[in-house]
Computed example of a mutant assay.
Amino acid sequence: MPEVEPRNIVEKFFNSVANVLVTPTVWVREKIVEPNQQSYPWYHQKFRRVPTIDECYTDDVVCYYEADAQYKRDRLVDSNILSILRARFEDCTLYEAPDHLEKCKPLWNQYEEAQTNWFIKYGDLGGYHNVKTAYMKQKHRMIWERRHGPVGSGKKTE
Rank of each mutant, 00 (worst) to 15 (best):
W118R: 06
K12Y: 04
L94N: 10
C104N: 01
R86M: 04
V151H: 00
T116W: 08
D124I: 03
I143N: 01
G149A: 10
G126E: 04
Q70Y: 04
A134Y: 09
P24M: 08
E158P: 01
T93W: 02
N8L: 08
T93E: 09
T58K: 11
A114H: 02
D78S: 13
E113H: 08
I84N: 10
Y128W: 11
T52F: 09
H44S: 13
P6T: 03
R147I: 07
H129Q: 11
Q110A: 15
R86Y: 15
I120T: 05
D91Y: 03
L94W: 07
N117I: 00
H100P: 02
I32M: 10
A67M: 09
V22D: 02
A67F: 05
E11R: 12
D59Q: 03
Y135W: 06
L76V: 13
T93D: 07
I9S: 09
D60V: 01
P35L: 07
K121I: 03
N36T: 06
R146A: 06
A18H: 03
L107W: 07
F14H: 09
G123T: 07
F47E: 07
Y64P: 01
R147H: 03
T52R: 12
Y95Q: 14
Y65S: 09
N36F: 10
P35V: 13
G152E: 07
A18G: 04
P24D: 06
K132E: 13
R86T: 10
Q38V: 11
P41T: 07
P2L: 06
W118Y: 15
E145Y: 13
D59L: 12
T157A: 04
L94V: 06
W27G: 04
I120A: 03
H44I: 04
D60N: 14
P106W: 02
R88G: 00
M136H: 03
H140C: 08
V131L: 02
C104K: 03
A114V: 01
V61H: 11
W108S: 10
K139H: 12
